[in-house]
Design a protein around this nucleic acid. Structure first.
Length: 425
RNA sequence: GGAGAGGUGGCUGAGUGGUCGAAAGCGCGGGUUUGCUAAACCCGUGAGGGCGCAAGUCCUCCGCAGGUUCGAAUCCUGUCCUCUCCGCCA
């Protein structure tokens, strides 16, 4: 969330930002409520102060009659305070609902536009788009020929959108994880495997909405837990409520987790095969930085994503995400879109965001600067290293051969144990 | 899953109803002394929020959420977490 004070003092630019982001928020109502909330809070505090004074004086009062009179006065004041406080709480509830729906501010250089059509291509990978002298297959056909994925069994076990990886696909999954982790560890990231479930408060803190009609999140019945949609959630929660020394920043971690998404409302939209599934494995980068470091860190994360996909030999383009497509927490976001011959189009394979202090404010993650009084909110960033299912699509489709076999990218060969995946006899 | 113990400031740890935002020590910052460093001594030192140009002042915070009370770190209830022992298990 944004700072209330900031919103109040910059209502015009916040409003413009909401428009640019294609988010509909009643900002005037927010300003009105927040102004009133402040007045009411002052009133409640004033009453509370009086009540506290009376309470304190009772301890020093010896005369019994005087004590009783004071008690009575105290009772009256407390009651009055509680009434006002209840009103304040009601007002706060409405205010918080609006507050939570106000998106982060946007980087001044982020392309302005209402949806992904305004995304701006800013770079390409080093690998050229392959020119096939045969009709390329899509990953579903390839996976069938090579016996790599069982979608039918996935459907029987868990329903549409689930799958079993088989044979070399399993090795490919492990190899992709290991490859990404090795690149990241060499860059100072601490690798972690994270909980696949998280408390709803952590989901909310990172900007995910655990319940409601449009939720992307599976929640666990009778608990305050949900399945995570990305390791960004547990990694953000890693420092929830903590204050770290600025010397520890930037702090770079990467997490392997399963990712679960209901994909509510996404039916019919590029749902074939592994592209849009309810469960996949992902290696995610996450960074905690000072405000001064976050812009550079976003470039670093984007650079690492490029390195990982250049290393895999997968063609891609880099896109600077338009304001209307940024989502709630991101201040700026870059996506890598890999060329997928089966679709004849690019498809998103990574996404990296600078969330500035938007997540940190709700998660209450702060840092302390040596020699300075007080603490400040830090900045959080996240970025996909490898989302296995989509990376697998890109690898299978780009590396396919005329005979239906698939060459294994060189960096993955040691882990896969072979140079080529061939149809089973 | 069962039994017990415990969660207090950056850390250790005292505090069982009123002057406690909280003793003491450590740490940290500043100073005195001192060839330098160290030691010793002195002073200072939690966070968030409101109002104020500022000095300052008020509110909130002793795991979390409720309750009792004029008043709660302290009493009650629930809950989460940690530790020890037992059971079970990968």
């Amino acid at each position: 969330m944004l700072d209330r004070k900031f919103i109040l003092e910059n209502a015009d630019i916040v409003k413009l930002n909401c428009t640019n982001r294609n988010v509909h928020v009643d900002l005037d109502r927010f300003v009105e409520l927040e102004t009133r909330r402040r007045e009411m809070q002052a009133e409640v505090e004033q009453l509370n102060r009086q009540a506290n004074e009376v309470s304190k004086s009772i301890g020093k009062t010896k005369d019994p009659a005087e004590r009783e009179a004071r008690k009575e006065e105290g009772r009256r004041l407390r009651e009055q305070t509680n009434e006002r406080r209840t009103e304040l709480d009601e007002l706060s509830a409405e205010l918080d609902a609006i507050h939570g729906s106000i998106p982060n501010m946007s980087h001044p250089e982020a392309p302005v536009g209402e949806d992904d059509k305004s995304n701006l291509e800013i770079a390409r990978g080093i690998t050229p788009v392959p020119q096939f002298d045969f009709q390329p297959l899509d990953h579903v056909e390839l996976a069938e020929k090579l016996d790599l994925v069982d979608f039918e069994a996935g459907g029987r076990v868990a329903g549409h959108g689930f799958y079993f990886l088989k044979n070399e696909a399993v090795l490919l999954e492990l190899a992709l994880q290991r490859y990404a982790i090795e690149v990241l560890m060499a860059e100072g990231f601490t690798p972690m495997t994270t909980p696949d479930l998280a408390l709803n408060s952590v989901l909310e803190g990172t900007g995910y909405i655990p319940r409601g009609p449009e939720t992307q999140i599976y929640s666990i019945a009778n608990t305050e837990l949900s399945l995570v949609a990305t390791a960004e959630i547990p990694l953000g929660g890693l420092l929830a409520g903590q204050t770290v020394d600025d010397e520890q920043l930037p702090m770079k971690v990467c997490g392997i987790s399963h990712c679960f998404r209901t994909e509510a409302g996404a039916h019919g939209r590029a749902t074939r095969g592994l592209y849009r599934v309810h469960q996949f494995t992902k290696v995610e980068m996450f960074a905690f930085t000072t405000p001064e470091q976050s812009d550079a860190m976003l470039e670093e994360l984007r650079g690492l994503e490029c390195r990982i996909f250049d290393g895999l030999g997968v063609p891609y383009r880099v896109v600077d995400t338009a304001t209307g497509d940024l989502g709630g927490p991101a201040y700026r976001k870059y996506d890598l879109e890999a060329w997928m011959p089966g679709r004849g189009d690019y498809g998103e394979v990574t996404s990296t965001s600078n969330c500035t202090d938007y997540q940190a404010r709700r998660l209450n993650i702060r840092y302390r600067t040596k020699g300075e009084k007080g603490t400040k909110l830090l900045h959080t960033l996240n970025g996909t290293a490898v989302a296995i299912s989509r990376a697998m699509i890109a690898v299978l489709e780009n590396y396919q051969q005329a005979d239906g076999s698939v060459i294994v990218p060189e960096v993955l060969r040691p882990m896969v144990g072979k140079e080529k995946i061939e149809p089973r006899g």
